[in-house]
Design a protein around this nucleic acid. Structure first.
Lengths: 331, 331
DNA sequence: CTGAAAGCGCTTACAG
DNA sequence: CTGAAAGCGCTTACAG
């Protein structure tokens, strides 16, 4: 274990003050070229690496941001996180990632931890933000951007236009005169109440089909093919489904196979996240394609702007989506 | 934005010194009960949250650890990360996660960042550690634990016994007199040269089958069903394959389907990581089952011990694995 | 262009 | 059991 070399050692060896070393490190332009070179050489020779914790305390900037997400093991969030991480590294930020597990108590603890560590900003993903999160970040003046999560109170966010995407997927089926089921998680989450269900209804209205609440399925709990909800969908009038999650879509597909249904002949499916599993299924599953990496990347980019007090053009950014047709839909 | 309340404000309001407030926060037992309660009340009333950056500078402990992994979007690493994160939170650590993308230059930058931020330890995953990583962590005296990655130089690690697991999987096929292909990534990675290939050879020896190097396939690049390697496997003598990655196993399965092979009748597959995709495939893929969450969790637990200078029993921890037979093998 | 000094918000011997 | 003071390793006005 080598002795730690501090800014003080560099200053001594280079015959300048700590302030000058600091200026060189921070690329302050008003340092004489000659001095700068001398300091740079000493920095290199001594293999000096500034202590970011001390920098953080003195400058009140930690170049660390927090990322709160429901589940890192979920491909959807993991892909967003990769986009965030790449841009973060590019702008010299590090990310503290924490799984909220959609558990409010755990999330509160995470938020407290993150703020105690003086993160410069937070990217939040998942369902609706908790009150504690909103209050704490506001009190601390911490920059927040939502990624792949809907906005409740004017917080900047990056998403696709869920309402329009669900409307498009539903319309695709309605054009074929299918009875369309909408499979979501909790009806009360804003993303469902404010975007998915209205989008579904937009499509119905466009095609003059009346809304049947029995065709909205709330998928919950038991995350396996034995979840009775899957059976219920096939037992209903529906001949097609727009599904909010790829995992659920795959299970719906496999359940159909188990029941002897032919997909897409007897039943069609469009899912929402286009994660890699859609391509692993047989038939491959048609999906709304979201630019996950980009959503994360753009969210991080916006966060850097907010942290630098730069102007942010649009608070709500909608990135383009596509609907990719594979084996689970008939064209 | 609320004014920040510091330890100084608390000390003032409670009529004690900062030192006493600090002692209360750190649960130092030698504080009079009465004083302690008074301070606690003020802390609560003022909603005081200590600044972890200042604590870090003063105590030289940041309660933050770094996690370096090749790809967060890979289910295998994501699951390890979840185990790490859970235990980290339990011991009040936060984790800075960084994607190395298996890019040496990027990884070096990450290592420098992490050490500059004075992380108390690092959990490393992925292929062989770089020299820069080894040297820097050693010079800094930073604790390191490997998770799901093999040990090169006595660094503590948590794994399953890959050699034995591959031997078991291979033996399963040899018992049926199959010709077994071993599908790996780069032969030169220690995990392949020191564990997987020897394990495969152990099985051959046990069954008196001679080693045929043409049955070792190095999968690279083009990560899709069109990768010619997949075709090569079916074109070889092999009637079964032990595969190092679930993604590759699925593609191998789907390739077989494309070629009109029946799995498991014409060809059998055992994969290595038992991630969720194995259950999404049809037939579902048999797999070595690694306790990914546990590997991450145990690695983090060991790291906490090292950081606390506690004794660590075994430097190399092997967790139990299983082989789970599903539709891609014949029993 | 450069330095001296205060300050960031804590912890930790040391002394009592 | 408690306080005064030094120190952690930087940055940042301020002065020159």
């Amino acid at each position: 274990m080598q002795p730690k070399v501090t800014i003080y050692d560099v200053a001594n060896a280079a015959n300048v003050s700590m302030a000058t070393v600091s200026r060189v490190m921070n690329r302050n332009p008003k340092v004489k070229q000659e001095t700068k070179e001398r300091v740079l050489k000493v920095i290199h020779d001594l293999n000096y690496h500034p202590n970011a914790v001390a920098q953080g305390l003195a400058s009140k900037k930690t170049t660390t941001i927090g990322v709160i997400l429901p589940d890192l093991a979920n491909d959807y969030f993991a892909n967003l996180a990769v986009g965030i991480d790449d841009i973060a590294l590019m702008y010299n930020y590090n990310i503290i990632i924490a799984n909220s597990s959609e558990d409010t108590e755990k999330e509160n603890k995470i938020v407290d931890n993150l703020l105690a560590k003086q993160v410069d900003g937070i990217i939040y993903m998942g369902r609706d933000q908790t009150e504690h999160f909103q209050k704490s970040t506001k009190d601390n003046g911490t920059a927040v951007v939502l990624a792949g999560s809907v906005d409740q109170e004017g917080t900047p966010s990056v998403n696709i236009n869920y309402r329009k995407a669900i409307c498009d997927a539903t319309s695709f089926f309605l054009k074929q005169k299918q009875k369309v089921a909408l499979v979501i998680n909790d009806k009360n989450y804003s993303i469902n109440s404010d975007y998915r269900i209205p989008g579904y209804q937009d499509a119905l209205k466009k095609y003059g089909v009346s809304f049947d609440p029995n065709l909205i399925f709330e998928y919950r709990d038991n995350n396996s093919i034995s979840n009775p909800m899957l059976q219920d969908i096939y037992d209903s009038d529906a001949t097609a489904a727009v599904v909010y999650s790829d995992d659920v879509a795959i299970m719906l597909l496999n359940k159909g196979f188990q029941l002897g249904k032919s997909i897409p002949d007897d039943f069609q499916i469009i899912t929402s996240n286009n994660t890699v599993v859609t391509k692993y299924a047989r038939p491959m599953i048609s999906s709304i394609s979201q630019p996950l990496y980009d959503i994360g990347a753009v969210a991080m980019r916006i966060l850097t702007k907010i942290m630098n007090n730069e102007k942010v053009q649009d608070k709500q950014v909608f990135l383009d989506y596509d609907i990719i047709h594979r084996g689970s839909t008939r064209i």
